[in-house]
Design a protein around this nucleic acid. Structure first.
Lengths: 343, 343
DNA sequence: TAATGATGCTAACTCGTTTTAGCAAAACGT
DNA sequence: ACGTTTTGCTAAAACGAGTTAGCATCATTA
């Protein structure tokens, strides 16, 4: 690049001032520019292939036009989550529409560099969407209290931070109710991640409530933990099979984790759903293609991202904090892994 | 935020000039600052929670410290590709290490807004990694000729643009050779995407070469097309089964696409590998968890991203164009979907 | 004692925009 | 013919850093 053209170059080429160039190219209302000058400027800009410098514009506007999308997880786990791309797609679509870009970054909770805060304080981004926060996440609370535009994709034990989420507890309850309705009473649980995460805690609590409503005694021994990866599901299922427990059904609070669990079953020649019923959660795009197709809870991931981005951009442009949380509906998707479908 | 603190605020608080603040905080060599002043500045910066403004820094440095990662696909297809997260992980890890951020954006080839060029000319990014370019991609060629730092993740019919890739042809050949070695001679092909993409063309050509080397006549009728999504694999497999062809094996040039194809087979009660052998390509993280675990070609996706990012950052920091392409090795992964493993 | 050198700091310019305030010249009204 | 308004443009001040050149002050040397 033989140096990018600046507004000054355009001004010189068109024989006008930088100010005029700016007025013309930004279509400023109320500034009277003759049609003749306007054309001269437009042509010069075209000829020089002029594009205004983003940093310079940012500085004077006080806005970067960049959104930060942060996952509160270790990078390897963040990228393993198969629901994530859908959320990203929702965000980036809205961002593009409004002329924003998106910086994506996994920032684990124990991050000692405070990358979340830094991202905002260095003004790399205008606002943040934080996915999968911990229940207690002081960094997020501090940022919010410092008036950082921040939208949670998930829930946190602190009021008033605007969020976009599903009702994890209700959804999990729905899932387990389905299993119960099919006659299962010995139902194990594999979590999507550790209980530090609010989504985890809520799903577990939904599982528990469904059991109790059906008069089934909740048993800690039936609860196992995944970490968002298929490998963790593989291992958890091994643990279940290796134990003396003989659940007739398992509710796995993440399809991604369930993938690994299904593999364990496949390896041990245990048939799904004939020998054991498997209920997933998330409805990742490939769940319907698994063998057997996974019954699960559909999360509107794209819409989650879409809503989060819209709330955030609205906040940025209107300068007013969103007043309401946005809770999207989930849906029980019955496929074949629970055996409820007549074949 | 009651307004972010600026360098001037720190200077005032510490009772020194802005220049001194800058010298202290950036640890400029050769500038002699007394330990006393240094501490005063550091304390003031700490107290005010000072973070230098990214835009301002960008402007004066002439660098944004942002890398652009662009996928040459429609957003829905880009986000459906299950290998992508691994590549992203590689890029973002290297980027983080060097103090760069990453803007991710799918930019389809027919994009009428020239988003790729704009991203660079507006100086939103310092350089670009472009994944999955078309064979002919004039916009990329133009950018490169304008000296934009750009690394391809894939190949293009134009010399000298630095790239990180695998040898798609050789890898496909390896895959098909495996099927042939198992005795298959009627082998169908489902592509990963349309032939405009170089990776597609190369995989098809590898398939063809393997057949010809084995004395098997290549037949256009056995070639089907996917579009990177499981759904396309589902449909392509239906087409195959609906035809009069009776291939004993199918090479599917994308595990993501294969997922859908496996579903078709499951639905029609066709057993893999007993009734038909399936060979994948990509080795997406979940391939080993499928039922049956998919035999495939391993692509070092993380390393692909890692190398691309390193090449690019090196280019940016050393100001010299990389001289060599970087071709990474693939590996045949034999699992169960081709029936080669004794159970 | 005066010249020289090192030490410790700062004034002022730069980056490329947007935007405010205002200045000429032309058009208008009385 | 003189004031007023409108039209069309520009000078200059931001924005918040990094950086160059140079100025005092104090210590050292001749």
């Amino acid at each position: 690049m033989n140096k990018r053209a600046t507004a000054k170059d355009v001004a010189d080429a068109a024989g006008v001032s930088r100010t005029t160039v700016s007025f013309v190219l930004n279509n400023i209302e109320g500034m009277r520019i003759s049609e003749e000058t306007r054309q001269k400027v437009l042509q010069a800009a075209e000829a020089l292939n002029y594009h205004p410098d983003a940093s310079a514009r940012s500085m004077v506007k006080g806005k970067t036009f960049i959104l930060g999308f942060v996952i509160r997880q270790e990078p390897d786990k963040a990228y393993a989550d198969l629901l994530l791309p859908e959320v990203m797609r929702g965000i980036s679509e809205v961002a593009s529409e409004h002329g924003y870009h998106m910086i994506f970054k996994p920032v684990p909770p124990e991050d000692e560099k405070n990358s979340l805060t830094t991202l905002f304080l260095e003004h790399q981004v205008d606002g943040l969407i934080v996915s999968g926060p911990l229940s207690k996440d002081q960094e997020i609370v501090d940022l919010f209290n410092a008036h950082a535009p921040i939208i949670l994709q998930g829930r946190i034990d602190y009021p008033n931070i605007p969020s976009v989420d599903i009702n994890n507890r209700k959804a999990a309850e729905k899932a387990v109710n389905h299993l119960i309705s099919l006659g299962h009473r010995q139902i194990a649980f594999i979590s999507n991640a550790s209980l530090q995460y609010s989504s985890c805690k809520d799903r577990l609590s939904g599982y528990r409530r469904a059991l109790e409503n059906a008069g089934i005694i909740y048993d800690d021994a039936l609860v196992f933990y995944g970490d968002r990866t298929p490998d963790s599901g593989y291992q958890a299922m091994k643990n279940i099979l290796g134990s003396s427990l003989k659940p007739s059904a398992i509710f796995i609070a993440s399809d991604t984790v369930a993938l690994g669990s299904l593999n364990t079953l496949y390896q041990q020649n245990i048939r799904v759903p004939e020998d054991i019923a498997i209920m997933g959660f998330d409805d990742i795009p490939l769940s319907k293609h698994l063998a057997p197709p996974l019954s699960t809870i559909h999360i509107p991931a794209y819409k989650l991202g879409w809503n989060a981005a819209n709330l955030l951009i609205n906040w940025l442009e209107q300068e007013e904090t969103p007043q309401h949380d946005c809770i999207l509906e989930t849906e029980l998707i019955v496929r074949e892994s629970c055996g409820s479908r007549q074949k």
